[in-house]
């Protein structure tokens, strides 16, 4: 590249698309969740060294997601015209950013306390995690459709197909809620065995794992708003 280019160009009318980094950002959330599933398995197997290792990997992913988020925000000056409302886009970026954040929280809680788990609780945790992860995966499918929406410039058919994924994310999140409620009950049934600290730790863990699905559902909802209000 020449330092001082002898160029008059139309380039300045083309702004950086926020949609590519938005997609990358969504992938960070899914990556963090996959790592977290691994971390929970290691936790249940009592391999705390592996949990620590995965937790720091999740920290790195979360940080990368933050950098992407900041880039998107800094590029959206008021003069930028998008095919969607910029405020809606930012409203949707926020819950999407909460996905890797929450994954980071869960990983942190896992590192806090080693725990001898009764089988029923361990299975419950793994089931909750896999359902939460499934919600995030479904959310990722939804975000994948965004590029096609842009390509057809929001054709009715593509919009319909994309919006059809949102209720699926909502359904999965509902299933997560059900597992969550039952699991908390089971934890309290075992309170003598687990001790106060154990119950507190597990109840909090269940809550944050459930939050991952919550945030995905929230982001999916915001994405729908963004598409419908454009």
């Amino acid at each position: 590249m020449m330092r001082r280019k002898y160029i008059r160009s139309v380039l300045s009318v083309f702004a950086e698309s926020p949609f590519r980094p938005l997609h990358m950002h969504a992938e960070k959330g899914a990556d963090a969740t996959r790592k977290l599933s691994e971390a929970l398995e290691a936790y249940c197997a009592g391999d705390m060294a592996r949990v620590e290792e995965l937790s720091s990997e999740i920290n790195v992913i979360e940080h990368e997601a933050d950098v992407i988020k900041q880039t998107i925000r800094s590029q959206l000056k008021s003069s930028i015209m998008l095919p969607v409302n910029a405020d809606d886009l930012l409203d949707f970026l926020k819950p999407q950013d909460a996905i890797p954040d929450t994954a980071q929280d869960v990983a942190y809680w896992l590192t806090l306390r080693k725990c001898e788990l009764p089988d029923v609780i361990r299975d419950g945790l793994l089931e909750l995690m896999s359902k939460s992860a499934e919600t995030v995966e479904m959310y990722e499918t939804l975000v994948d459709k965004l590029s096609e929406l842009l390509e057809t410039s929001f054709s009715k058919k593509e919009v319909k197909q994309t919006l059809a994924i949102v209720p699926q994310v909502e359904e999965l999140e509902h299933e997560v809620d059900v597992i969550e409620t039952n699991l908390v009950k089971t934890i309290f049934k075992h309170e003598d065995e687990l001790g106060g600290a154990g119950v507190y730790h597990l109840a909090e863990l269940v809550k944050v794992i459930g939050d991952i699905a919550d945030k995905s559902e929230h982001a999916a909802d915001r994405l729908r708003t963004m598409i419908l209000r454009r």
């Binding site: 300045s12 009318v13 083309f14 702004a15 698309s17 926020p18 930028i80 015209m81």
Partner: peptide
């Protein structure tokens, strides 16, 4: 017309 991902109107 909604055909571009981002246009900078400051131009």
């Amino acid at each position: 017309a909604g055909g571009l991902a981002a246009v900078d109107l400051s131009v």
